[in-house]
Nucleic acid binder design. Structure first.
Lengths: 343, 343
DNA sequence: ATGAAAGCGCTAACAC
DNA sequence: GTGTTAGCGCTTTCAT
């Protein structure tokens, strides 16, 4: 007693149930799992006995010889920030529905921590891993034997053969551009994050592409900066100073778009009447809090997580996927492009 | 072969190591765990053999008879939003350091889902649970047998005997009030969230208390509304219309404070020169993005998670804690109260 | 339809 | 020091 820690209170086992129901342990197993042939009556007796003593089969013992734990490791390099969270949510949701439990690991972008987590979880015999992070930039593959399924979500593996589920940044830019063209805007500017974010460059090229289809060019080179409201404000000043008749701005993030919206208002331009404004991420909180609420491209982060989970389950079942897969994005229209006077 | 799914590739066992090192399985166990007496030489041989075949002990098998899994369940009622995330981060951090793995569960505030998760994790023989949520409001206790340790983080159990780690909302209001008094402000207003948030009411009373110590009263009743920027803006108009010489506003959240800051600027009041402004939460992103950056009360959410983990570990070791424990908050001073001209 | 026995991978107690 | 044995809780042949 004194040698046992508090948590290890003995719980009911198949043997207890067997004794109570007057059968053998093997029979209990069959009855409760629906395997083998059991008479209707004994099964009822066994089920009753199990409930009476609150029997809960020990999943660990089962996993030992099933060679499967029905658990997966979810590794985020990025202290679950704004972007990894929806991904994790989607993954957890999809896995939980399949009765798979999820181990949460925050590697903090530290390879040593990551290795540690992988080792521990391998010891726990996880069936696979989902790896996620902050950006669309590539990351080195997880260092595990090839027979352990791994799916990368949001942040793809640098090995193109690995299964990676990512957002479609290029399409995001395109969707924004097409919307602006549809609205009849022709003097379009672009404000975004740092050039070393693949996402920023891809969104820009998607935008350029969409505009080109309508024979429109950006009024100025994309303004690359950092992902802050302050840069959004500053970039607006730069843009308006150099371009007189700008009538639309697409931003690489909602945060940037907020900064832009604030500066536009202060400079006397009306949104959307004078300048239509589109953000990216569809971060509810930011988009709806802005004045006016922001039209934004939703990248489908939750769907990324959900799909990653699906692909991982497939791989675990022996049907691995390979290569990168893009999740479609979609536009969410709000006041910053939806001019009520045109309604 | 065909009957095995991909993930169940056979991994090395103690027996394999034993064969390779020319010893018995029992000896391998002792050598690798540092138990029993083993000659320096054989141990070296065993360790070498283990590494050669990449042996990783099966934690599940070990847990079966150790009656401990070294895992805990982390249940959030709240799709890890802004408030639960730092808590979870802190918990994961503290537990990971103690070689405990964390199961992530998003109950979405649905009792049925919660029960499901608890059942599954009990089957996995978790050593305990941490339960977290969005608000400071009480929640019903988790429905598990009393010998399973549970710690509530952020959202306390309605049973006061349960171990709950919470933020100190009253102190938050007090800290803000004391800071304003120290700055020489005497005409203080308060804008906050809905009355049915315990946190809102407690912060208000803490503020009132601090002001009272300096013989100061609020210039108007606290303005209760919702936790949005829009309400922050609206409340500012209300306040300024009814009170002429207001010189400070404390807000129940940073989001509210942002709305207030925007309206103050637009109404021609300078922050902090004319009106000092304090928010709550210290949400980096919001606080630093505001103009000027917001002074804010940091509630210590990460510390809540970390402490909850610590308390849970204690309980698992047989030293349960009982009752509510408050984590101290602290003020983070930024431009909205820090008038450079007084520097 | 049910029971007995063997075994998953690991460790602890007891021999030698 | 090291090997042998038994057993954690569960499942799965194989008898009966």
């Amino acid at each position: 007693m004194a040698r046992r820690v508090a948590s290890s209170a003995k719980r009911a086992t198949v043997r207890d149930v067997a004794a109570r129901a007057g059968v053998s342990p093997g029979t209990v197993s069959k009855a409760l799992n629906g395997t083998g042939q059991i008479s209707r009556e004994t099964r009822a007796r066994i089920v009753a006995a199990a409930e009476e003593i609150d029997f809960r089969p020990n999943a660990l013992a089962r996993s030992v010889f099933q060679r499967r734990s029905y658990t997966v490791g979810l590794i985020t390099t990025d202290s679950f920030e704004r972007f990894s969270v929806p991904v994790m949510l989607g993954a957890e949701d999809a896995l939980g529905a399949g009765r798979i439990s999820v181990f949460l690991c925050d590697s903090r972008d530290d390879p040593v921590r990551e290795k540690h987590y992988v080792d521990v979880l391998l010891g726990r015999r996880v069936d696979g891993f989902i790896v996620t992070g902050r950006s669309s930039n590539e990351r080195p593959p997880l260092d595990v034997s090839p027979d352990v399924p791994v799916v990368y979500a949001l942040t793809p593996s640098s090995n193109p053969a690995d299964c990676s589920i990512v957002v479609d940044d290029r399409a995001a830019g395109r969707v924004a551009g097409e919307h602006l063209i549809r609205l009849g805007r022709r003097r379009v500017g672009h404000v975004t994050g740092p050039t070393w974010f693949d996402a920023a460059r891809r969104r820009a090229s998607g935008l350029v592409e969409a505009l080109a289809s309508a024979n429109v060019q950006l009024v100025a080179d994309p303004l690359y900066g950092d992902w802050t409201e302050a840069w959004g404000r500053q970039a607006t000043h730069i843009l308006l100073r150099s371009v007189q008749d700008i009538d639309a701005i697409y931003c690489g993030s909602d945060v940037l778009a907020r900064g832009v919206a604030d500066s536009l208002r202060e400079l006397g331009r009306r949104v959307p009447e004078d300048v239509a404004l589109i953000g990216t991420d569809n971060w509810e909180f930011i988009a709806t809090g802005a004045r006016p609420p922001l039209t934004s491209v939703d990248l489908g982060l939750t769907a990324v997580g959900r799909l990653a989970a699906q692909r991982l389950l497939d791989a675990i079942e022996g049907h691995p996927h390979s290569g990168r897969e893009h999740v479609p994005c979609h536009l969410v229209v709000r006041g910053s492009t939806d001019d009520p006077s045109f309604g």
